[in-house]
Amino acid sequence: MNIYVLLKRTFDTEEKIAINDGRIDEEGAEFIINPYDEYAVEEAINLRDEHGGEVTVVTIGEEESEKQLRTALAMGADKAVLINTEDDLEDGDQFTTVKILEAFFEGKEADIILAGNVAIDEASGQVGPRLAERLDIPYVTTITSISVDGETVQIERDVEGDVEKVETSLPLLVTCQQGLNEPRYPSLPGIMKAKKKPLEELELDDLDLDEGDVEAKTKTVDIFLPPEKEAGKVLEGEIDDQVKELVSLLRNEAKVL
């Protein structure tokens, strides 16, 4: 099977995030593989081990993204592609990403493309489905189980806590949800082998694209942190009075009723 994984380098949202001049401060931020993409990498490796073939991990980013690609190689992926837009692009959006990936996948004959359900930074969840549309292949989002038998694919997907069972066929794009698998740690032998695995670097030029083709369709107007959590309030007195006060607070202060 010809397996592809779409991977994004993102900052670790478990670390403290600071905003400077309307941009997220990258100084001191920890960067990781988008956790949903880790499920995609793990599932891709499992599919390859079961059905044979090759796993190629693709990312759009900058020189620094090589670290995350090497980590995916260390986990067991076979090849990696870095589409480096550092010199070509200031900003991009989901349109940009999809446009670049569409050009990349031209003539690739992918059997299955796995992506994360969302990236934890901007959380649009758009790139996977939009790419599938452009490539004119079926897609299933938020999958929690997948099994491939010949061309037939059985999928379970998470629908707001319920399970939906879907049957579809290859070629296919899926986006991966928590619960699909438990991503492995890259082992030490894996890490050592990763440095010998092929990592191809492409620029927009190599995909016959120029900046105009991929210009973002949206504009980020503002970025801000959620309001700081204020100290809680402990109600006192008789239970009946507490209930009345709580209802009144929910209605008048929090305005949720």
Partner: peptide
């Protein structure tokens, strides 16, 4: 090196 950094990250996550 990248390998040293990856090892540190992996061991930290595991730990």
């Amino acid at each position: 090196t990248k390998e040293q950094e990856m090892t540190r990250k992996m061991v930290r996550d595991f730990a």
